[in-house]
């Protein structure tokens, strides 16, 4: 009888903790969503509200498209996925189409930034990050489910008998 009460108490406690955790997490995510434009504006907001950011430092990542004289064209890797023209420091770097370029620079025009600091990841190196990541997923799944199985009745993971 006491065992049953204890189990009910534990289930109730777990439900409460889960509910509180999900609520806090959703609050944090909503806060991040609401404050995003003010605290960590992305390029869609910056370009749309250029007057607020003119002469200010912005950062973004884009893929190298082409270079015309003193202007390097990058395609944004975030919305609005448009082309931005970058001048300045970027000119000294050898770039190939598709290379990922992180830029920290001064906003001059809605689609023009003067780079102060850049960081380049070669296209193949960037792709390699994802390729190197792929084996990890089946490995973790195998490692985990070799030891644990999910009990849908109790809604918990239980150790497999042979583990």
């Amino acid at each position: 009888m006491d065992g049953g009460k204890e189990r009910d108490r534990r289930i109730k406690m777990r439900k409460t903790v889960a509910l509180v955790s999900i609520s806090i997490l959703l609050l944090l995510m909503t806060y991040s969503y609401i404050e995003h434009d003010e605290k960590d504006p992305d390029m869609a907001y910056i370009i749309k509200n250029f007057e607020k950011f003119e002469g200010k430092k912005v950062d973004f990542a884009g893929r190298f498209v082409s270079c015309n004289g003193s202007v390097t064209k990058l395609k944004l890797m975030e919305p609005p996925y448009c082309i931005v023209n970058v001048t300045g420091k970027i000119l000294n770097v050898s770039l190939h189409k598709g290379d990922v370029v992180e830029v920290l620079g001064i906003m001059q025009e809605p689609h023009k930034i003067k780079a102060e600091k850049i960081y380049v990841i070669k296209s193949f190196e960037y792709s390699l990050i994802f390729i190197r990541s792929l084996p990890a997923i089946p490995f973790v799944a195998y490692l985990f489910f070799r030891k644990w199985k999910f009990n849908f009745k109790k809604f918990i993971f239980e150790e497999r008998d042979h583990a």
């Binding site: 944090l28 991040s32 969503y33 434009d37 960590d40 992305d42 869609a44 996925y81």
Partner: peptide, 11 residues
């Protein structure tokens, strides 16, 4: 191409 507007950043 869906803008999540930093919703997942806290994770």
């Amino acid at each position: 191409k869906i803008d999540t507007h930093g919703f997942f950043d806290p994770l």
